[in-house]
Design a binder for these strands. Sequence first.
RNA 1: GUCCCCAUCGUCCAGAGGCCUAGGACGCGGCCCUUUCAAGGCUGAAACACGGGUUCGAAUCCCGUUGGGGACACCA
Length: 503
Amino acid sequence: MRVRFAPSPTGHLHVGNARTALFNWLLARGQGGTFVLRLEDTDEARSTAASADGILEDLRWLGLDWDEGPDRGGEYGPYRQTERLPLYREQAARLLAAGRAYYCFCSPEALEASRQAALRDGRTPRYAGTCRHIDPALAQSRVDGGEPAAIRFHIAETEAVTFTDLVRGAITTDIEQIGDFVLLRQNGLPAYNFAVVVDDVAMGITVVVRGEDHVPNTPRQILLYRALGAEAPAFAHLSLVLGPDHAPLSKRHGASSVADFRARGILPEALRNYLALLGWSPGNDEEIVPLDELARRFRVEDVTKSAGVFDPDKLAWMNRHYVKQATADRIASLLVPHLTTAGYLAPEGAADDARRAFLEACVPVIAGTVDQLADAPARLQSVFEASSVDDVVRHLDAEGPAAAEAARAVVVAFAQVSSGRPRLTRESFREAAQQVRQMTGQKGRALFHPIRLVLTGADSGPELDLLVPAIELGAELPPSSGVPAIAGCRERAARCAAALAGA
RNA sequence: GUCCCCAUCGUCCAGAGGCCUAGGACGCGGCCCUUUCAAGGCUGAAACACGGGUUCGAAUCCCGUUGGGGACACCA
């Protein structure tokens, strides 16, 4: 089995296309087939190299690798349509010689006018066949004389075209619906329908899995396969991905491209798992399914026929799940750009061990509590910003002996509990809270929180955060770590120590 | 406008004639745990679009209506 994903490099990889790529990949990997990546870059106005690079990068990030493609070659290459031009010309010449194609000299303006007229009259626009009957020899001489011409397919059949779609079943199209379409444009570049067929034949593609928007193209392509004397592959058309308002998913729905989700700190395994379950299920109620398992169980035949609405909430849920599953080490690394953007880390800061330990200590606070890593800075605000500690110190003076005592008790308790054991575990905070309760009696309340202890004044007053762990860890950070906001931690630690000494 | 496709909780899926007083997940409500917030556990509300058939029996099959989507380019 040979399947392919053939994006046109005219923008970012959209989640809808990513899902198509994923289903192709799952099919190939699950069946021991070959996954081919081909760039359909024949739209010279819109295709860009940057977009092509971005798409390959996004696919790699998602963990979808290909066996043959523009970057790595393969025996059916090249894998960029603009590098396959001679092939299309050759096949077009063949069809021309066989009388299954002809030169068309119609002007784009005339074509557009008749198209508009058809639309106005409620007819399906289709080429009138104006140039169909021009004598081939005459046409050739006009072309030789330098007259610009496109090459059109001559539809000779008179019967409806039927094919069996792997997900939709039999689909029949009345032949009257199909006009003679363009194979080669005036500029010599192939039109979509022609290029795909020539390539899919040449590349030995056996199953075509693509978006539902290609259903109407399929009968045309089948006609081409016949004219070319090639066997048509099996087709599977995936329903589209819609936004919450049931309109096709686009930028105005917020994140809609793979790059967007990556930038926001969605893990690839989360996006991939979510997308796999949009329109397909393993057949039971499982929701969290690892990639290899997805591939093992995937069958195109089981894909839903109806369109799917993209649900950011469910994606967020999956992402929280996968962030919890991920190692602290990995999440710590992924946190860096977000914390840097927030100004919590200096861009030039050294990624030394102390900084790494500090960031890893922050991970439990993030895990499961944040939808996407981009939300991490807000969640970690109290860790990185000095204001709340200053509040405590101020409060010690303002609230009088009772509050001061409670505050000191918290610091003492935490210091006792946290010394010599892994920091920031739930258990250590539980113990700390326990001790604080004993030490403070009914005066004041000390609540635990992963990474910080919250101190509430005896009767009223503002809630205060005592950032003991942050202070402690921060104090160990060398200035070179590039954690500017934490740099004052030494001082803050000293202040707390002084408060303790006072007690 | 014409052609094509689709139709189970708000959303994503399960359901391939009796197992359905329709199951799971996200989200939402409540309770528990936690003297905050999260996380976790338990629990609740929530759907077979409508109308005709076929059948002893329909969410499951057929037809129509309605609703949604797609396509009608020398763009892919």
